[in-house]
């Protein structure tokens, strides 16, 4: 089944979720930001974000898929590949 959601829509939703979850203003987040630095989060909080994203998009994303991923755009690509 082909997902009707575009990559940009996925990215927008991720940025909105991250903003709301970590209480960082949406305008301060950009697709190519290093989310560890911009959100000020560690790996435990990244797992928290991952759970939120999995629940929101109804996908399962093994956390080893996040190896080397530190920006929202790449993260969105990983999510999109599971839709």
């Amino acid at each position: 089944m082909i997902s009707m959601q575009t990559a940009d829509q996925t990215l927008d939703e991720i940025l909105a979720l991250a903003s709301a979850h970590f209480k960082v203003p949406r305008e301060k987040l950009s697709p190519d930001d290093d989310f560890f630095k911009t959100l000020g989060i560690d790996s435990l909080q990244t797992l928290d974000l991952l759970t939120k994203l999995e629940n929101h998009f109804h996908v399962e994303l093994p956390d080893y898929e996040l190896q080397g991923v530190s920006d929202f755009r790449t993260l969105a690509g990983k999510i999109k590949s599971r839709l």
Binding site: F36, I41, D42, S43, L44, T46, L47, D63, Y64, L66, Q67
Partner: peptide, 13 residues
């Protein structure tokens, strides 16, 4: 490596 890690990802595989 785990104990001395200062990076953001010690709990990621």
């Amino acid at each position: 490596k785990f104990v001395e890690s200062k990076d953001a990802q010690p709990y990621l595989p």
